[in-house]
């Protein structure tokens, strides 16, 4: 009886399982294809008029129906860049502390607390940013930045204008806080996965904690670390609600990080429901297409860096 069952499973179970998983894979690919089709089809009326210049044209005028993706595109890149500038070093430090320095009984509770941060809905970050951080920025942080960094040559131009609180800088900082738990969780996980023998050998050779992490742990799990950073970047690029709250939703380009701006996802969230006219709607779908392509390239470059580094790494 038992044997029959086994034989039956070997005969039919395997192929059935194979086709089931294949079906899942194909479904994802089909969805992906359908998504691209819908984005191109939906944005076609705008792309036909504006052509590829849509990407590098600025101006967003619903009255004259002239639309360009440049301002939101740059806004997306700048806010994500600020987010990574904050998120990556902080996450690295946190993961470093949790795996190497922190007393053992505290490690698990702190790790869980950080992972809980990842579960906080983005709108909560947005509300917190608008009601708590924005007034703080307007009264204290931004006047200080304008008075100090604002006078430094070259980088001074990033810290100009009236302090409003809301703007690109605040959006970038909120995003940085939002991606932090993601990157930290992944980094901590991969740091822990490094075999104890490697670590202990290095300590045995007299390496300092920093040397152990920088020379042994990090090269060993570079793949995982880059993966974590990419996950964070993906979230920063596409984050909508929290950014919409604090970026100011203005289609303006300014060198000052304190000025209000917009991102692609924020523009879509703000304008899609009420956009009237074919070109306006199509331009918004076009923004979606630009974001899709941008995310695709960023992830592709990330993957590429990952493969390149894997060759040179210990793994």
């Amino acid at each position: 009886m038992q044997k029959d069952r086994q034989r039956f499973l070997m005969r039919f179970g395997d192929p059935a399982f194979r086709s089931l998983t294949l079906a899942f894979t194909l479904l994802v690919l089909m969805m992906m294809g359908a998504l691209v089709y819908v984005l191109i089809e939906g944005s076609w009326p705008a792309l036909r008029i504006f052509g590829p210049a849509f990407v590098w044209t600025s101006g967003w005028n619903p009255v004259t129906e002239h639309f360009g993706a440049f301002v939101p595109l740059v806004g997306t890149l700048i806010t994500s860049f600020i987010a990574m500038l904050i998120g990556v070093p902080f996450s690295f430090g946190l993961a470093f502390f949790l795996t190497e320095i922190c007393p053992h009984p505290l490690r698990q509770p702190i790790a869980i607390a950080i992972e809980l941060l990842a579960a906080v809905p983005s709108i909560i970050y947005g509300i917190w940013g608008l009601f708590v951080l924005a007034p703080l920025f307007q009264h204290d942080v931004e006047p200080f930045l304008i008075a100090t960094l604002g006078n430094v040559p070259v980088i001074g131009m990033f810290f100009q204008g009236p302090p409003i609180g809301i703007g690109m800088l605040l959006a970038g900082i909120i995003l940085g806080l939002m991606v932090l738990p993601f990157i930290t969780a992944v980094m901590r996980e991969v740091f822990v996965s490094v075999p104890a023998v490697l670590r202990e050998s290095a300590y045995g050779l007299g390496a300092t904690r920093w040397e152990v992490v920088w020379r042994v742990v990090l090269p060993y799990c570079r793949k995982g670390v880059v993966g974590g950073v990419m996950l964070g970047l993906g979230r920063a690029l596409g984050e909508t609600m929290a950014v919409t709250f604090v970026i100011g939703n203005a289609h303006h380009l300014s060198t000052s990080l304190l000025a209000p701006g917009t991102t692609i996802s924020a523009a879509l969230a703000n304008e899609f429901t009420e956009a009237d006219g074919v070109i306006y709607t199509a331009s918004l779908v076009g923004l979606g297409l630009v974001l899709f392509v941008l995310t695709f390239f960023v992830l592709a470059i990330g993957k590429r860096m990952l493969l390149g580094s894997a060759k040179g790494g210990l793994a």
Binding site: N61, V63, I164, H251
Partner: peptide
């Protein structure tokens, strides 16, 4: 909806 010369939205 218009192209606002200044401000935040």
């Amino acid at each position: 909806a218009v192209e606002w010369p200044t401000g935040l939205g």
